[in-house]
């Protein structure tokens, strides 16, 4: 089993965190994982993306050049990565900020109203966790419980009070992706 993800958006949307939680949770589930960020002269509002590979075998390339699974959080990323997607791939995209659909017939595209759902839950900053819930629902690579364990370890005791709202966001995202 090998799952390759490309997660892209703009800086500040938490796309790197989505990838890290995915990798951390899968690691705790006993899988081999790699997480590779795009790096460059980056800034808030600039482009950000990361590649995550989860496998039961040792991981070769940590780069994902033809993503079988693309997680797209903003419109420039949709335009940039749609052409390189693998045939038959799965794209989860944030329809709150993207007013177009991917122009590919040979992929499955799932629209998730990440920001809308997060705002309804009362914390706009959990839009990335809504998307993580959708990823979990559609791919089954990790469970919400293991993602929560990873988030707990990332947050530490200071932010523990934010765990319930993040869980609610993941669950709402999973529901939206059904």
């Amino acid at each position: 089993m090998e799952a390759q993800f490309l997660i892209a958006g703009f800086g500040g949307q938490g796309v790197l965190l989505i990838g890290q939680l995915l990798a951390k949770a899968a690691m705790h589930d006993g899988m081999n994982v790699s997480w590779m960020p795009s790096y460059g002269p980056e800034m808030r509002g600039g482009e950000a993306n990361c590649a995550v590979v989860v496998s039961d075998e040792p991981i070769g390339s940590p780069l994902v050049t033809e993503p079988p699974i693309a997680v797209i959080m903003n419109k420039p990323s949709m335009l940039k990565f749609t052409p390189s997607m693998e045939k038959g791939g799965l794209m989860l995209y944030n329809s709150s900020l993207i007013d177009i659909e991917p122009d590919r017939e040979d992929i499955t595209a799932v629209a998730i109203d990440c920001n809308g759902i997060a705002e309804k839950l009362g914390n706009a900053r959990t839009a990335n966790m809504v998307m993580l819930g959708a990823i979990i629902q559609r791919t089954g690579v990790i469970s919400i419980d293991s993602a929560m364990e990873a988030l707990k370890a990332t947050f530490g005791p200071k932010k523990e009070h934010l765990l319930p709202i993040n869980r609610a966001a993941m669950e709402a995202g999973a529901e939206a992706a059904k």
């Binding site: 890290q20 081999n32 994982v33 790699s34 997480w35 590779m36 960020p37 790096y39 940590p62």
Partner: peptide
């Protein structure tokens, strides 16, 4: 190289 430095792994 940049990849070994920037990549996260267990």
């Amino acid at each position: 190289d940049g990849l070994i430095g920037q990549m996260m792994e267990p």
